[in-house]
């Protein structure tokens, strides 16, 4: 039984209304009830998954998803500092904005995963295929999350996945073109596609479990 279950509704509501004092109050209660990793996994992740799913069904807006993500990231950083041994950081996971500079999607996923107790590298924005290949090799990245906004950027991922074919790097894609065209992620050779932060948390949780 989730020991934070009676806090989740209020936490979600406070996040959606960007009510910082209510968020802080509920979070303070939660850390009295469980370990840092439990708060990240059972309160924060669950609230962010609900918000991600609500966006998918059109009931909340992107700004609410984003603000919830960065608020939670900040809260979790206080109890699970970057590089904390309790964070789930192996195998190495990284995220980047591919080809364009529209970074909101990346920031949402980055914050949500970090707020969920994961650790990941931010490889940057506007990266080309060559940039990504270099950074993946340098950092021994095994799980690569790529965010795009523009259709031409999405189509260029194919060249990257062709280059990475035969390696154990798994490329997970997300962004507007993939949300609209449900076959596009297959066309570009991605391992998986996430439509929102809830999908990202689910895919990464499963992959981390498989590859640890």
């Amino acid at each position: 039984m989730n020991k934070f279950r009676f806090l989740i509704d209020g936490f979600e509501r406070a996040l959606l209304t960007v009510d910082r004092s209510a968020v802080d109050e509920i979070f303070a209660k939660s850390i009295e009830l469980g370990s840092s990793i439990q708060v990240a996994g059972e309160l924060v992740t669950q609230a962010l998954e609900r918000i991600g799913n609500a966006w998918e069904s059109g009931n909340v807006s992107l700004s609410q998803v984003y603000m919830a993500g960065i608020i939670c990231e900040e809260l979790i950083d206080k109890i699970l500092p970057p590089m904390s041994s309790e964070r789930k950081g192996k195998p190495t996971m990284a995220i980047a904005v591919f080809e364009d500079f529209h970074i909101l999607g990346k920031r949402i996923i980055y914050s949500s995963l970090r707020a969920g107790g994961f650790e990941l590298l931010d490889l940057g924005n506007g990266l080309t295929t060559e940039d990504v290949i270099k950074k993946v090799e340098e950092n021994n990245v095994k799980i690569l999350l790529l965010s795009v906004l523009m259709l031409p950027s999405a189509l260029k991922i194919k060249k990257l996945t062709e280059h990475l074919a035969g390696t154990d790097v798994k490329v997970i894609v997300g962004g507007a073109p993939f949300r609209i065209d449900s076959e596009l992620w297959i066309e570009v050779g991605a391992y998986a596609m996430g439509k929102n932060s809830a999908d990202a948390l689910e895919i990464v949780t499963k992959l981390m479990g498989e590859t640890v």
Binding site: V18, S63, Y66, M67, I70, F101, I103, L104, R107
Partner: peptide, 11 residues
Amino acid sequence: LGFDKYLELMY
């Protein structure tokens, strides 16, 4: 500004 910084400005 970039979308992320703009949303933070707005709120």
